Amino acid sequence: MRPIRPGLRGDLARTLRRVVRTGFAATTALLIGPTADGARAEPAAAAAVALVVSVDVSQSVDDSRFVLQMEGIAEALEDPGVIAAMTGHPGGTLFAMVTWADRAGLAVGWRRIASRADAFAAAAQVRVTPRQSGEFTCLGQMFRTVTASVLPAMPVPAERIVVDVSGDGIDNCTDPENLETERTALLAAGATINGLPILVPGENDVVGAGAYRAPGYGLRATPLPQERTDLTQWYRSHVVAGPGAFLLKAAGYGDFSRALRRKFVIEVSGLAPGRRDE
C-alpha cells in the first residue's frame, strides 16, 4: 500500500470539516479533484428553489384517495406550465416528496428538475410510491423530520426552500405547544410553509371539536385539546408560515391535481409576495 502524503491528509481533513460546516452534499465535489483533462471539477450549481411536497397518508386517506394524490402530484410535474416554472431559473428546481401519518418518511429523494425529461422522471417515481401505513395525522412529526433529515440532505444549496403541506385533517398526536415548536424550528431552517387543505363536505367541515371522528382522528376522538374550527382556518393558524407563505384549497380529492398545479407554479415562480388564500 502506498503511503498517504502528509499534505494530502491535511487537505482531506480540511475538506471534510467544510462538508460538516455547510451541511450540503454538493461540497463532496471538492474531493473529486482534477478531471481527466486536468481541469478541476466545478461544484454543482445552486438551485433557485427547493420544493418539499409533504403529503398526508393517514387513515382517512384510503387507497383511492392515495392514488388520486400520487397521480395529482405526477400530473402536476408533467404539466407544461409547471415544467416551465421549474426549469425557468438557473439551476432548476430541487424536488423531494415526504409522506406522513404516524411517522414521516422521504418517499422520493432529492432530484434536480432542470428539463422536461427530469420532470417526467420525477413524476414516474411519484407514481410508483408505495402506500405508507399509519393511523394518525402527526404533522409535528413531519415538521421535525423535514428539519432534521430532509433539508440537511439537499444535494446543493437553494435560494428558497418551500415545504408544501397537503392533507384532509388536523394534527391529532402532537401537543399544540410542541407543534408550534416544531414549526418554528422548520422556519428557522429557512423554509416557507404553504398549505393545501383538502376539503371534503360532510367529513371535515368541522375539525378539532374532540367529540367527532373527523378525518385524521383514526378510530378514536383526539385526546388533545383542539379548538373547534374548520380545516382551512386550522391550516392558516398551524401550518402556513414564513416569507411569502400562502394557502390554496382543494375542493375534494378530485380537485387536488388542479389545485396542486396552480400551487406549484406560484411556489416555484415566487409569485406570492405575501400571504394569500385562494
Rank of each mutant, 00 (worst) to 15 (best):
L247Q: 02
M1T: 15
P130Q: 13
A41S: 11
A84S: 11
R220T: 12
T15V: 13
G274P: 00
C138L: 14
A36G: 03
P273Y: 08
L31I: 13
G169Y: 01
G202S: 07
G254V: 10
T35Y: 02
T174D: 14
A158C: 06
Q233W: 04
G195L: 06
Q59G: 08
T35Q: 15
G242S: 09
I198P: 00
T27G: 02
P155G: 07
W110N: 10
L224W: 09
D277M: 09
A76C: 06
A96W: 03
R275I: 09
A48L: 07
P201Y: 06
G72L: 04
L94Q: 07
C138G: 04
K249M: 08
V19A: 12
L247A: 05
F120L: 15
T192M: 10
A48G: 10
S269P: 00
T137W: 07
W234I: 12
D230G: 05
V162T: 01
F95I: 02
P157A: 10
R17G: 05
G81D: 15
G208F: 00
D62T: 11
R2E: 15
L224E: 13
V98Y: 01
R40I: 13
L77H: 10
A36V: 14
G134P: 03
V150K: 04
L139W: 04
L231S: 05
R40H: 08
E42K: 12
D205N: 08
R183Q: 09
T184H: 03
V108T: 11
L231G: 00
A101F: 04
L8R: 08
R220M: 13
G134L: 10
F24G: 06
V108N: 06
D102C: 07
I4L: 14
T222L: 04
V52P: 01
L219P: 01
L219F: 07
P197D: 04
S58C: 09
L94H: 05
D205S: 01
D11W: 13
R21C: 02
A245D: 08
D255A: 09
V57F: 06
R17T: 14
A76H: 04
V207G: 03
P243E: 15
T129A: 09
Q132R: 11
G105W: 08
P197L: 00
T222P: 02
I266M: 13
V82I: 13
E71L: 13
V156Q: 01
R262V: 10
W100F: 14
A117H: 07
R65C: 05
P157W: 05
L186R: 02
T99R: 09
E71K: 10
L271C: 06
V156L: 10
A25D: 11
